[in-house]
Design a protein around this nucleic acid. Structure first.
Ligand SMILES: [Zn+2]
Ligand SMILES: [Zn+2]
Ligand SMILES: [Zn+2]
Ligand SMILES: [Zn+2]
Lengths: 143, 143
DNA sequence: AAATATTTGCAACTTAGTTGCATTTGGCTA
DNA sequence: TAGCCAAATGCAACTAAGTTGCAAATATTT
């Protein structure tokens, strides 16, 4: 891991008062190094031989979510995809697009969606998630 | 099951040329009788002692999805929720709201969301799903 | 350095959904 | 109506993401 990324990970852990353990720095480093959500399995793969146990990764991600560093971006094929929460508000994050051909996910950070309005009195919409599917430019059959 | 619902189920099966078996009529009848997505487990519960095997329910739902009668409304807690596809277009369905207090799901059929626009050339957005969470009127802490 | 609370790793578990295969059934034909 | 056959069903076994319990290890405090 680049030392700048490592430092950033350390700083983030400090900022939420989580102990700076090796697994946490490593996992946060992976998330800092990519610009899209990752699954637990993808995180393990990126850490290779040094990857912590999957239970540790799940618990670490859960602690990051609890502290607001990370959010659960979306569930796809019954698998959670996690990413840094720095581009999110409490109410919503950017839409996520997954290519049905190659499976790659793209963050549509430049796309803003209006919040759905409650159809009647009484509903409090705390969070909105927008998921997109289709063909990415690489797999676009019309291109 | 009401005979009108049963007849409607039969008609739907005929319309897509699926054999009218007992499990199919029963499952379609359950979906016709509610106005929200149901899980496989909820379908089994509603059918009680006469419920088909869970494998049959999954395969039946899959055949309905294939024929366009039903769609996978959303995945929540790693569980699929299925509903009739009659209020959906190919591109998107109405938003679904789930109460984080009581767990009830509501179809926001009266709420229309604009389709996200591709942030750059080349993306083909085939489907958009909007999921909402919050408090339903029953559980609204401010009411 | 010792004490203590937190974190980690391992094994076992949970559960939604899937697969293989033998049996049954719907719909067609004679 | 009886018989045929592809399609559908049920059961058991399986798969895989994520969770739980607990003993061992580690970060922080004293
Ligand atoms: Zn692609
Ligand atoms: Zn994202
Ligand atoms: Zn509620
Ligand atoms: Zn709905």
């Amino acid at each position: 891991m680049k030392s700048a990324v490592k430092q950033k990970a350390m700083d983030l852990l400090n900022s939420v008062k989580l102990r700076r353990t090796n697994p946490r720095v490593a996992i946060l480093g992976v998330l800092l190094a990519v610009d899209r959500p990752l699954t637990r399995d993808q995180i393990s793969t990126r850490l290779g031989r040094d990857a912590p146990d999957k239970v540790t990764i799940y618990r670490t991600l859960e602690s990051f979510v609890r502290e607001g560093l990370v959010h659960r971006a979306f569930l796809r094929e019954r698998v959670w995809h996690f990413e840094l929460a720095d581009d999110c508000t409490e109410q919503q994050c950017h839409p996520h697009f997954t290519c049905i051909s190659c499976g790659d996910t793209h963050c549509f950070t430049a796309v803003t969606m209006p919040m759905a309005r409650s159809p009647e009195e009484g509903f409090v919409i705390g969070h909105q998630r927008v998921q997109l599917e289709g063909f990415c430019p690489k797999c676009n059959p019309n291109a």
